Simulated assay, not measured.
Amino acid sequence: MKKLFLLAAFVIGAGLYNQAEAQTISDNALGLRFGGGDGVGAEVSYQRALGMDNNRLEVDFGWRNNSDFDAVKLTGLYQWVWNIEGGFNWYAGVGAGLLSVNAEDYYDDDDGTYLFVAGDIGIEYSFDIPLMLSLDFRPEFGFFSDNDVLNEFAPDIALGVRYQF
């Protein structure tokens, strides 16, 4: 009986320990991703934790409206997250997206809707308050476009600011 009790305590303790270790990312995070490069600029960003393995889904929605072109961009990424130490995590992911461009006269060749695939690698810091800052690199590869510029590699480096809940 004593051995059975100790075995049960060990199994429960190990399960609680693994569960505590797996909760290094928040269930939800909502904020802004301030990107550059050939992107649309700032994007509204939402992250949702998936399961117990520190994996998550990130969905970003961005738009740009200026004198040269109007653009709407939707990106979805699956990310793997690893804890470093003291509130720091690093992550990597893959995904795809859709870009719709309505260009002015000079950029008429850019009009249309395009698909792209993306990678993602970055580092983030979660504060003791429900705030997270991140810095990531997202290479994007466009395809199915008549425009050679949109079919090429487009690097994007961004700073993310998100509220965790």
Rank of each mutant, 00 (worst) to 15 (best):
Lys2Met: 02
Gly62Ile: 01
Leu150Ile: 07
Phe143Gln: 09
Asp136Tyr: 06
Pro155Cys: 03
Asp108Tyr: 14
Asp38Val: 00
Phe88Ser: 07
Phe116Trp: 08
Gly95Arg: 04
Leu150Met: 08
Leu4Tyr: 10
Pro155Leu: 02
Val81Asp: 14
Asp111Arg: 11
Gln164Ala: 04
Ile157Trp: 13
Lys73Trp: 03
Glu124Arg: 10
Val40Thr: 14
Tyr163Gly: 01
Gly142Lys: 06
Phe137Ala: 10
Ala158Gln: 06
Gly51Phe: 06
Ile129Gly: 03
Glu43Trp: 02
Ile157Met: 14
Gln47Tyr: 10
Ile84Val: 15
Leu99Arg: 08
Phe34Val: 13
Asp136Phe: 07
Leu7Gly: 07
Asp27Glu: 11
Asn147Glu: 13
Tyr107Ile: 02
Asp60Val: 00
Arg64Pro: 00
Gly119Trp: 02
Ala96Lys: 01
Asn65Glu: 10
Asp110Gln: 10
Gly119Leu: 10
Ala29Gly: 06
Ser100Gln: 08
Asp27Phe: 01
Ser67Tyr: 09
Ser134Trp: 02
Asp136Asn: 15
Gly122Lys: 01
Leu98Asn: 14
Gly97Ser: 07
Leu98Gly: 09
Asp27Ser: 07
Asn66Ile: 02
Val117Trp: 09
Leu77Glu: 04
Gly41Phe: 05
Ala92Lys: 01
Gly93Tyr: 02
Val81Leu: 03
Leu4Pro: 00
Gly119Thr: 06
Asp27Thr: 09
Glu21Tyr: 10
Gln79Trp: 00
Glu104Gly: 15
Ile123Asn: 05
Gly31Asp: 04
Asn151Trp: 00
Ser67Leu: 08
Glu124Ala: 15
Leu133Phe: 15
Ala96Arg: 02
Phe143Asp: 09
Phe88Gln: 06
Pro130Val: 03
Leu135Pro: 06
Leu6Met: 08
Gly36Asn: 13
Leu7His: 06
Gly76Ala: 14
Asn89Ala: 03
Leu16Phe: 12
Gly112Glu: 12
Thr113Val: 12
Gly87Leu: 09
Leu16Lys: 04
Asp70Arg: 13
Phe127Pro: 00
Gly51His: 08
Lys2Asn: 11
Ala9Ser: 14
